[in-house]
Write a protein that binds this DNA or RNA. Structure first.
Length: 153
DNA sequence: AATGGCTGCAACCGCTTACCA
DNA sequence: ATGGTAAGCGGTTGCAGCCAT
């Protein structure tokens, strides 16, 4: 993948944060034509973005059914249960949380839950090595689960 | 009021998987 | 059966905003 641009016309590829104008172009284009092959979609819509970038933006932010922020305690519990079961299979987990994206769940896990698990482990005085912070921690996250539900507002 | 550190989120990168000719 | 292409996925990074000093 990630081949060179096949013609010299599309030299300019924008990166970084999306502007409101770009968002609108993408939303309108998909509203009129639907999702398709992302690379050609990006071109046809006149966006100077890669198809990959368009897809990510659409799935994680622009889709009408995306719910943002305010992860409920129920969702949090579910995330933890599913993570204990499957590990870092974020997209799989996201499928069980309607309106939530894998990126959001991943971020939520890494920034909040993981931190609390570490704190919990430290409180146990184990000081256990940091190797098991990720998918190996299935068991430890399960143990920390009740603690977390109380701790996270 | 200024500033330095921390946190959380959006977006990118690189690898893997699925599909098609 | 094989090679090429697009999509999907997970990990990582950059940066804006917040908070403590």
């Amino acid at each position: 993948m990630d081949k060179r641009p096949c013609n010299s016309q599309d030299v300019e590829v924008r990166k970084g944060p999306w502007t409101m104008e770009e968002d609108l172009i993408l939303i309108n284009y998909i509203a009129n034509h639907g999702e398709g092959v992302w690379n050609s979609l990006a071109k046809s819509a006149g966006l100077k973005r890669t198809g990959k970038s368009c897809r990510l933006r659409w799935l994680n932010y622009l889709r009408p059914d995306v719910r943002r922020g305010n992860i409920t305690p129920e969702e949090q519990l579910l995330i933890m249960e599913l993570h204990a079961k499957w590990g870092n299979k974020w997209s799989k987990i996201a499928k069980h949380l309607p309106g939530r994206t894998d990126n959001e769940i991943k971020n939520y896990w890494r920034t909040r839950i993981q931190k609390h698990i570490k704190q919990g482990e430290n409180m146990n005085g184990q000081g256990s090595s940091e190797q098991n912070t990720d998918h190996q921690e299935g068991s430890s996250s399960q143990m920390a689960l009740p603690l977390l539900v109380k701790q996270i507002p």
